[in-house]
């Protein structure tokens, strides 16, 4: 699986520019280790042996983390971010670091020291951002899932541009310790995948209290995968009435009022 992803990266990344750094050798070594462990009956969970990629603002020990900026183009962290530690503990294979809008401060991923990310649906279009490389890589099957960050839409927007699932978890649910911040009180990390179940599988590994993150929520983590198929009839949707009339263009008002007849 890792070799399949690396083959696709080598073939398609020159066009898509989704990856800034590809850790080919270490990824193959991690894959071989995972394979050996699984054959010995030591299966660690759903992400064991699965190739995952990381937005390039998430620190990885010994692998450069640039935030897509010339300022950090040679920056090599000495420690992993908390989400990376959790992925490693779960046996995930870390493929490399994904291109993004520089310092996550924008929604196109066109502004990057390493060049713009292309949308796999149509390379003439942008991938959205700031987690544009993550969305493009997942959509083009360069990896099975990715970690993005969302401060003002940076997971959700590129996910919609590229037709993948992007989940911004509740604030404090996933530790942001070890990531280059945009706004420490608004930053979120979350999974980007091709299916909702895949997002649940990744969130299951990422979620949980971290004492090194002052905003981390010390609450129990539910079984996300088990709730995927459960009924949604008891769920309630909050509607911000003020927002409904602010900034909405006229064409959105009729369906909005039809859906929310308050």
């Amino acid at each position: 699986m890792t070799q399949a992803c690396i083959s696709r990266i080598e073939r398609l990344n020159p066009q898509l520019n989704a990856f800034i750094t590809v850790s080919t050798e270490s990824a193959l070594a991690q894959a071989r280790q995972a394979e050996a462990e699984i054959h010995q009956g030591r299966w660690r969970g759903a992400l064991h042996g699965i190739p995952i990629a990381l937005k390039d603002l998430i620190d990885t020990s010994g692998v450069r983390t640039t935030a897509a900026s010339a300022l950090f183009k040679d920056r090599i962290p000495v420690a992993d971010a908390e989400v990376v530690r959790r992925l490693r503990a779960a046996g995930a294979v870390l493929l490399g670091k994904l291109n993004m809008h520089e310092f996550a401060y924008g929604g196109s991923s066109v502004i990057s020291y390493f060049g713009p990310v292309r949308n796999p649906w149509n390379p003439a279009h942008c991938s959205g951002g700031s987690s544009g490389g993550a969305a493009a890589a997942v959509a083009a099957h360069l990896c099975y899932g990715a970690i993005g960050s969302d401060t003002g839409g940076s997971i959700r927007e590129p996910a919609s541009y590229c037709g993948v699932v992007g989940l911004k978890p509740t604030y404090g649910r996933v530790s942001t310790a070890g990531t280059i911040p945009l706004s420490w009180s608004l930053d979120h990390l979350g999974p980007m995948t091709r299916t909702a179940t895949d997002a649940a599988l990744m969130l299951q590994v990422l979620a949980g209290y971290d004492c090194w993150d002052t905003a981390s929520a010390d609450t129990s983590v539910p079984d996300y995968v088990a709730t995927i198929g459960s009924s949604t009839s008891s769920l309630r949707i909050g509607v911000p009435r003020d927002y409904s009339s602010r900034g909405f263009i006229l064409i959105f008002i009729p369906p909005w009022r039809w859906l929310c007849p308050y």
Binding site: M1, A4, S7, P120, L142, T193, L201, M202
Partner: peptide, 25 residues
């Protein structure tokens, strides 16, 4: 989907990359 186009052109060695994470796991 973008994958349906590239899947036809993809070498057989890349077939595993088209699984979902759940199925790959």
């Amino acid at each position: 989907s973008p994958s349906s186009a590239v899947k036809r052109l993809a070498p057989a060695s890349e077939a595993l990359a088209f699984l979902s994470l759940e199925d790959a796991s």
